[in-house]
């Protein structure tokens, strides 16, 4: 009879974390940052049809890095959760914090109990009503850890370096063009990224119910050039 190998829990967790991190580091990153008019998400993405950033609900956006099919599954689950809550209660009862917690539960479970951990990191952002510090940016890691960011955050490969560049350049009251330019340069480092290699979407504080808006390549190019 063969005996199963004993693996220390620390080792098992470390192996899983290394596995997930490797998968995430292979992909290209994204950043989210607050600006005067809301929250903007800038992702490095050469594809015009496979999206990393998308709309979840009226004031909530989602972004993911890592394995596409895995974060897309999470995106759809988030839309479902939000729509079900809004349908059964009220649209006002849907918020990013609850959604971030639900994502954390799912990712945490898959990390400890699943066949393999999900190779994704996701971002849930919500634009507040007043803009007086009520915007929210949640970063949820492959193991279910949730980090709440005040101003800006970076996800994906080389996140530490990107975060460094991002926080160096960040200042209060950036306009949209400034925020997109900072996001793009933080992602690029010593490379340079053109508008076609970027996917940009914003959550705009305003009178419209649906705050999410995608920016086309032309608009991004204009913002980067200004």
């Amino acid at each position: 009879m063969s005996m199963p190998y004993y693996v220390a829990p620390e080792q098992a967790m470390k192996d899983r974390a290394d596995f997930a991190r490797k998968g995430i580091a292979r992909g290209r990153g994204l950043v989210a940052l607050r600006h005067g008019g809301g929250v903007v998400i800038v992702a490095e993405n050469a594809s015009q049809s496979l999206r990393k950033v998308s709309e979840i609900y009226d004031r909530i956006a989602f972004a993911g890095v890592g394995k596409y099919n895995e974060f897309d599954q999470l995106r759809v689950a988030g839309i479902r959760q939000a729509e079900l809550t809004g349908y059964q209660y009220s649209r006002d009862d849907v918020d990013a914090r609850t959604l971030a917690n639900d994502y954390a539960q799912l990712l945490g479970n898959s990390f400890t109990h699943g066949m393999k951990p999900m190779e994704v990191e996701i971002l849930v952002a919500e634009v507040g009503l007043s803009g007086g510090g009520d915007d929210q940016i949640f970063h949820i890691m492959y193991d279910g850890t949730v980090v709440d960011h005040d101003d800006a955050c970076a996800l994906g490969g080389d996140a530490d370096a990107v975060t460094g560049r991002l926080s160096d350049g960040f200042r209060e009251g950036l306009d949209l063009a400034g925020a997109v330019t900072l996001g793009a340069s933080a992602l690029a480092g010593d490379r340079s990224l053109s508008a076609n290699e970027l996917e940009v979407a914003t959550l705009e504080r305003g009178d419209d119910r649906r705050c999410f808006r995608r920016l086309g390549a032309d608009e991004v190019a204009a913002l980067l050039g200004s």
Binding site: Q73, L74, A77, G78, R80, Q81, L84, T85, D102, Y103, Q105, L106
Partner: peptide
Amino acid sequence: MALPVFES
């Protein structure tokens, strides 16, 4: 409430 995730 757990996220609604379904088998394909």
